[in-house]
């Protein structure tokens, strides 16, 4: 698939590691992008974060405090990093029984968790909007 064939949804914010973030009232919803799910292939397992866990926004160097969990396909494991600092409020436990919905609905049913952010206004500026993320995908080739 070419970069332009992946769905990049307007109104969401994106990390370079291909997580998306949707701002809701006082909280954010997080998942992985259409590009990420396609590159992984059939998702067979999702490791979810524990509710109440504090996470840091993805940065360099990466460390465990930035990890929300992992998504596995048959031959690959991919760490899911947090695009925002905060506390995990809710997880999508449906993914434990039906991990494949990350493939079929990465932006809707396949959300991973809800985080209550610590400093949304500051940290969201470090993420890409839909236009910037589309350009980023094009540059990945």
């Amino acid at each position: 698939m070419g970069a332009s064939e992946y769905e990049v949804r307007e109104g969401l914010f994106y990390s370079k590691e291909h997580e998306w973030l949707k701002v809701e009232k006082g909280q954010v919803r997080v998942g992985i992008t259409d590009y990420a799910q396609d590159k992984l292939g059939d998702v067979v397992y999702v490791e979810l974060p524990v509710v109440g866990r504090k996470v840091k926004q993805i940065g360099e160097p990466k460390n465990r405090d930035m990890e929300l969990g992992a998504v596995e396909s048959v031959k690959a494991v991919s760490t899911v990093y947090s695009p925002i600092s905060g506390t995990v409020k809710e997880v999508n436990s449906t993914l434990q029984e039906r991990p494949e919905i990350i493939n079929t609905s990465p932006y809707d049913e396949g959300w991973i968790c809800v985080v209550v952010p610590e400093d949304l206004d500051k940290e969201i500026k470090t993420l890409m909007d839909a236009k910037a993320y589309s350009e980023y995908l094009k540059n990945l080739g």
Binding site: V44, Y45, E72, V74, K75, Q96, E97, P99
Partner: peptide, 10 residues
């Protein structure tokens, strides 16, 4: 190997 159940009884 990698081909094995991952959801239940993993």
């Amino acid at each position: 190997g990698c081909m094995r159940p991952r959801v239940r009884e993993r």
